[in-house]
Amino acid sequence: MTQEPFDPTEDAHRDRREHGGAPSLHPDDDALARRTEEERVEAGVDDYDPDEVPPATDDPVPTDLTQTEDYAEEQAEIKRETEESELYPLTEKHPFPPSHYDRD
């Protein structure tokens, strides 16, 4: 008894748009791009494969700058200068900002 390579009773439908012979193999574009990049690195055309670079390890930049330590320090400095009359709003009496700051 010969053994069939597949079950002939299996319900297999072919795509009728394809050739009647073996199904056409569609190349995987992503795999091709990976292999091409690997070959470019091996040949010395590219210095490195961008897909193999690890992610950055720096802390993410805050999107709300009012929550940073620098902002809090600057707010404290503005408050101190205002309380000591070093910084004041521009008015008719004081049309210009101070020309010097006392930093003793």
Rank of each mutant, 00 (worst) to 15 (best):
Ser24Ile: 05
Tyr101Ala: 13
Pro5Phe: 01
Pro95His: 08
Pro23Ile: 00
Pro89Val: 12
Leu65Tyr: 14
Glu4Gln: 03
Glu37Lys: 01
Asp30Ile: 15
Glu83Ser: 03
Pro60Gln: 11
Pro23Ala: 13
Pro5Gly: 04
Gln75His: 01
Glu84Ser: 11
Pro23Leu: 00
Asp29Phe: 08
Asp59Gly: 07
Glu81Trp: 12
Leu65Glu: 10
Ser85Tyr: 14
Asp30Pro: 08
Thr36Glu: 14
Asp49Ser: 07
Tyr88Trp: 10
Thr68Pro: 06
Arg40Asp: 10
His94Val: 03
Asp59Lys: 05
Thr68Met: 05
Asp46Met: 05
Arg40Pro: 02
Asp49Asn: 10
Thr82Phe: 11
Ala22Gly: 11
Leu87Phe: 09
Glu39Phe: 11
Ala43Thr: 05
Glu38Leu: 08
Met1Thr: 12
Ser99Tyr: 15
Arg16Val: 14
Leu25Val: 11
Thr68Trp: 02
Pro98Lys: 06
Ala22Met: 03
Pro98Gly: 14
Arg34Gln: 12
Asp7Phe: 00
Asp7Lys: 06
Gly44Cys: 06
Ala12Thr: 07
Pro50Gln: 03
Gln75Leu: 07
Thr57Ser: 13
Asp58Gly: 13
Leu65Asn: 08
Leu25Cys: 04
Arg80Ser: 13
Ile78Arg: 12
Asp47Arg: 00
Val45Phe: 09
Asp29Arg: 14
Pro97Lys: 10
Thr68Phe: 00
Phe6Arg: 01
Val61Ile: 12
Asp64Ala: 06
Pro98Asn: 13
Lys79Val: 15
Glu18Ile: 01
Pro62Glu: 04
Glu52Trp: 04
Leu32Gly: 05
Arg40Cys: 09
Leu87Ser: 15
Asp46His: 08
Pro95Phe: 07
His26Asp: 14
Asp11Lys: 06
Asp59Asn: 06
Ser24Met: 08
Ile78Ser: 06
Glu81Phe: 03
Thr82Gln: 02
His19Cys: 04
Asp70Trp: 02
Gly20Pro: 07
Asp15Cys: 12
Asp59Ile: 05
Tyr48Asp: 03
His13Thr: 11
Arg103Asp: 12
Lys79Leu: 15
Val41Gln: 03
Phe96Asp: 15
Asp11Ser: 01
Val61Phe: 13
Glu18Arg: 01
Asp29Thr: 12
Glu52Ser: 10
Phe96Arg: 15
Thr66Asn: 09
Tyr88Thr: 10
Arg14Ala: 02
Arg35Gly: 12
Met1Lys: 09
Thr66Ala: 07
Arg40Gly: 04
Asp64Val: 03
Pro89Ile: 00
Thr63Lys: 05
Ile78Cys: 05
Ala22Tyr: 02
Ala22Glu: 00
Pro95Ala: 10
Gln75Tyr: 03
Val61Gln: 11
Asp46Gly: 06
Glu77Arg: 04
Ser85Pro: 08
Pro95Asn: 09
Leu32Tyr: 00
Leu25Ser: 11
Ala72Cys: 01
Pro23Phe: 04
Pro95Gln: 11
Ala72Gly: 07
Val41Gly: 02
Asp104Tyr: 04
Glu37Ala: 14
His19Trp: 09
Pro5Met: 05
Tyr101Met: 08
Leu65Val: 09
Glu84Leu: 13
Arg35Tyr: 00
Ser24Cys: 10
Gln3Tyr: 08
Ala56Arg: 02
Thr57Cys: 08
